[in-house]
Design a protein around this nucleic acid. Structure first.
Length: 608
RNA sequence: CGGGACGUAGCUCAGCUUGGUAGAGCGCGCGCUUUGGGAGCGUGAGGUCGCAGGUUCAAAUCCUGUCGUCCCGACCA
């Protein structure tokens, strides 16, 4: 049965909703696919649900094709499994927690590693049962601080998550490769341009990890690519350290007056005026910027530390967070924020604006930063601070800087961290050329979990020697609702949406215009015959709506092919509009059926 | 969590400065006209002005609090 505009539960809007910013949000609401029902929560209306179901089914087919088996968990779960892996605490206020009538703690699951692990533990105990790939398509919950951009960032969303269980790393690699190939196929079939980029395994633990990003200005992730094909999330980019410099003949460091120079720009100006460089002039890159930061653990414990970076570079807190826990030797996931005035005041030796690694006393360099220094503050440096490099930096005295301070000779550090923001033009870690940064939306993420969850929840099987081995896991996600938003973002023009055929709510939109009964009989006939041939039809059978209204609705809704039955019928023609190709033209009535069927099939094959 | 803007009809908004019986356009109902680009005329229905306190004879309007929304920042599989 064709969908009929006269009875479809749909009200298109002429104006953009006031709370919408990005195109996908505006268009999905205006065209009647979704409606906001709660902060960060959207209702799927009939048209939207059809698109969502098509996306799900494509994902389902490709997961089944690599041997995945679908299951379905509750979203409401007890806290105990998440306590066992530490994530009840690690997630902090990022998840929804609630209590039942007896006061027992529950959560609305943000992701299901623990439950899948326990499910397999429940059923299997032998290597002969493995590998097994399980997945679900499920509603997930995160307590987003700031839902925004329609379906792109919400508190309740639909995600496909799958998990592989294998006896060893070879099995894991195979599962990972299969998922990777399946993901590429899924995004091809969806008609969504994505690139695979190296990612940090991050909070989930594990090793190999890639994200599938849809390049888009509306995206919230930054990734880089090089001419040689290197692609990575900025969080995963590693810096190539320069070669160490021989400093045997380097002159001793010298403290100079540098009045009112608490910023790098001011310091460079003052240095060029009062202490000109032997050749050339001082640049921001000659200075060593010591940034005081605070790692906050479990929202309470505050650990002040300092990172030193070249003065022309910005600190990237996200990149730092990826490695700070290990560097500080703490467990959990500390968040990092700029140190507050109170944090700094606890360390009286620090002179804000003039902080540096050393204090020169009687020509002796006294280390002021670092665990074994006067202050005991952990001190880390960017990889660009190599042995022998020479710096202008704070002298730990008011309005004084030290010039010619040599790394390793005059100061040491507790560790090297990726602390700076990646910039356009930085070299790719694999030597494949200069990097360019781009924005993207995260559509999928695959990673090798290894044994973290299996160990925490004691998932073991007997191997062929009868010995207990910990199962190796991988985890693989695709955002279903976010994919719908990304598709809308990628496929629209100034009039409305233009869905790829495989995800469109219908294949053909038949528009009957005019008042002649013959027109409506013909349109009705086409709608029924096309449906019988397996073509999905949205039929605008409204008698009272004006032609302009119908055309505007059809363009807004975005079914890719429009078949218009109207004034041409008297001379035996229909109009076919192809929004994907951007073409329109008249075709004889008796050729229209075959033409439309062929066109739909062609598009379906292209997208497969 | 910081900074800014905003909350009035299904949607987009005016009214608030200067307190005095709730407005427009679109959408919706009915009638007539119109029918290839969101048409016209007429006539209706629809709102405890986000919520709670306060000031006042009187509050959409002034004050306080609170909830929610959007933007920037912080944060974020």
């Amino acid at each position: 049965m064709p969908l009929r505009m006269s009875t479809l539960f749909l009200r298109t809007l002429r104006d953009d909703p006031a709370d919408a910013e990005v195109a996908s949000h505006k268009l999905l609401v205006r065209a009647g696919y979704i409606r906001r029902a709660a902060p960060g929560g959207y209702t799927w209306l009939p048209l939207g649900l059809r698109v969502k179901n098509k996306v799900e089914n494509i994902v389902r087919e490709e997961m089944n094709a690599i041997g995945g088996q679908e299951v379905h968990f509750p979203a409401l779960l007890p806290k105990e499994p998440y306590e066992a892996t530490g994530r009840w605490e690690d997630y902090g206020d990022g998840i929804f927690r609630l209590q039942d009538r007896s006061g027992a703690d529950f959560l609305l699951a943000p992701t299901h590693e623990e439950m899948f692990t326990l499910l397999v533990k429940d059923h299997y105990s032998s290597y002969k049962d493995l590998p097994v790939y399980l997945y679900q398509i499920q509603t997930k919950y995160r307590d987003e601080a700031r839902p925004r951009a329609g379906l792109l960032r919400v508190r309740e969303f639909i995600m496909k998550d799958s998990y592989s269980f294998t006896v060893n790393d070879e099995g894991l690699n195979e599962a990972y490769d299969k998922h990777r190939a399946a993901y590429i196929k899924i995004f091809e079939r969806l008609g969504l341009n994505v690139v695979a980029v190296e990612a940090m395994a991050g909070a989930m633990g594990g090793s190999r990890s890639e994200e599938f990003l849809h390049p888009s200005g509306a995206g919230e992730d930054t990734f880089v690519e090089s001419p040689g094909g290197y692609r990575a999330n900025v969080e995963a980019v590693t810096t190539i350290a320069p070669e160490p410099i021989d400093y045997t003949d380097a002159p001793a460091p010298e403290v100079k007056d540098t009045p009112v120079s608490t910023t790098i720009a001011a310091l460079v100006d003052v240095a060029n005026e009062l202490a000109p460089k032997a050749s050339g002039s001082w640049e921001a890159a000659d200075t060593l910027k010591c940034v005081v930061l605070t790692a906050v653990l479990d929202g309470e414990q505050r650990q002040v530390f300092v990172v030193a970076v070249p003065g022309d570079r910005d600190v990237d807190i996200k990149r730092l967070e990826a490695s700070i826990a290990e560097a500080l030797g703490v467990t959990g996931e500390p968040s990092i924020e700029p140190a507050t005035t109170e944090d700094i005041a606890k360390h009286a030796q620090l002179v804000p604006g003039y902080i540096g690694p050393t204090l020169l006393q009687d020509a002796q360099a006294v280390q002021m930063l670092g665990r074994n220094s006067e202050t005991g503050i952990p001190f880390f440096v960017d990889p660009r601070i190599v042995a022998g490099s020479s710096w202008v930096t704070g002298a730990n005295e008011d309005q004084k800087h030290v010039f010619g301070l040599i790394a390793e000779r005059d100061f040491t550090w507790d560790g090297v961290l990726e602390a700076t923001a990646v910039r356009d033009g930085d070299p790719a870690p694999d030597g494949s050329g200069p990097l360019v940064t781009r924005r993207g939306m995260e559509m999928g993420h695959i990673f090798q979990l290894g044994r973290k969850y299996a160990e925490a929840l004691d998932l073991k099987v007997l191997d062929e020697n009868g010995k207990q081995v910990v199962v190796t896991m991988g985890s693989y996600g695709i955002g279903i609702s976010r994919a719908v938003a990304a598709l809308a973002e990628a496929h629209h023009d100034d009039k409305g949406l233009i869905w790829p055929i495989n995800v469109a709510p219908a294949h053909v939109h038949i528009v009957a215009t005019g008042k002649d009964d013959e027109i409506f009989r013909t349109a009705e006939d086409f709608a029924n015959k096309l449906e019988a041939a397996g073509i999905e039809v949205l039929y605008d059978d409204r008698r009272k709506a004006h032609a302009g209204e119908k055309f505007a609705d059809a363009e807004l809704i975005g079914v890719p092919l429009h078949l218009i039955v109207g004034r041409g019928l008297a001379k035996g023609t229909l109009e076919l509009k192809d929004r994907l190709a951007g073409t329109r033209g008249d075709i004889p009535v008796d050729e229209a059926f075959d033409h439309v069927v062929n066109l739909v099939h062609n598009y379906q094959q292209q997208e497969h």
